[in-house]
Simulated assay, not measured.
Amino acid sequence: MKNLDKNGYAPSIVTFDTDCCFLCGGQDEKLDRHECFGGAMREKSKRLGLWVPLCHNRCHEYGPNAVHSNRESRTYCQQAAQKAAMQEYGWGKEDFIREFYKNYL
């Protein structure tokens, strides 16, 4: 397991550029860490590095394409995270489903 920061996050394996928004590339706004799999899978997402930086207003919380209100944006992040997890951890789809109960690809 990778070293976790004080908030329980491993370094992101979905993106290596955590200084800009994963969805729009913006750097002009505060960035939030968004766990690609929430709810009961939130802590596992944090520990495994399955999170992305998103601009707080436009892409995370309130914009028309924000992951908390737009299914396409949310699915895009989940698919990227699944691909990253499968590559990083050597998982097949069945392994991923065993961990996260669903295939997003």
Rank of each mutant, 00 (worst) to 15 (best):
residue 81 A to N: 03
residue 89 Y to L: 14
residue 66 A to Y: 00
residue 71 R to S: 13
residue 32 D to P: 06
residue 77 C to P: 07
residue 90 G to E: 06
residue 27 Q to K: 13
residue 80 A to Y: 01
residue 85 A to M: 09
residue 12 S to E: 05
residue 1 M to Y: 06
residue 31 L to V: 05
residue 19 D to L: 09
residue 67 V to M: 06
residue 15 T to L: 06
residue 42 R to K: 15
residue 33 R to K: 15
residue 68 H to L: 13
residue 42 R to P: 01
residue 15 T to K: 01
residue 93 K to P: 10
residue 3 N to T: 14
residue 59 C to I: 03
residue 83 K to H: 11
residue 78 Q to G: 07
residue 91 W to G: 06
residue 46 K to R: 15
residue 17 D to W: 01
residue 1 M to E: 12
residue 59 C to N: 08
residue 74 R to A: 14
residue 3 N to L: 13
residue 61 E to V: 02
residue 34 H to A: 10
residue 17 D to P: 01
residue 76 Y to R: 15
residue 100 F to A: 08
residue 21 C to G: 09
residue 52 V to A: 09
residue 88 E to V: 03
residue 101 Y to A: 14
residue 100 F to E: 02
residue 13 I to W: 00
residue 73 S to W: 02
residue 44 K to H: 01
residue 5 D to C: 05
residue 14 V to S: 05
residue 59 C to A: 10
residue 57 N to L: 07
residue 91 W to N: 01
residue 17 D to Q: 07
residue 96 F to V: 13
residue 60 H to E: 03
residue 24 C to R: 02
residue 18 T to H: 01
residue 15 T to P: 10
residue 63 G to L: 09
residue 70 N to Y: 13
residue 8 G to C: 02
residue 76 Y to S: 09
residue 56 H to Y: 02
residue 95 D to F: 00
residue 28 D to M: 07
residue 88 E to G: 01
residue 51 W to L: 04
residue 25 G to K: 00
residue 89 Y to M: 12
residue 61 E to T: 06
residue 2 K to D: 01
residue 94 E to G: 00
residue 31 L to Y: 05
residue 38 G to C: 07
residue 96 F to H: 06
residue 68 H to P: 03
residue 66 A to E: 03
residue 60 H to C: 06
residue 88 E to T: 08
residue 69 S to N: 15
residue 63 G to Q: 09
residue 62 Y to D: 15
residue 100 F to H: 02
residue 23 L to I: 13
residue 87 Q to H: 10
residue 20 C to A: 14
residue 81 A to C: 08
residue 24 C to E: 00
residue 49 G to K: 00
residue 22 F to D: 04
residue 43 E to Q: 11
residue 4 L to Q: 10
residue 48 L to S: 00
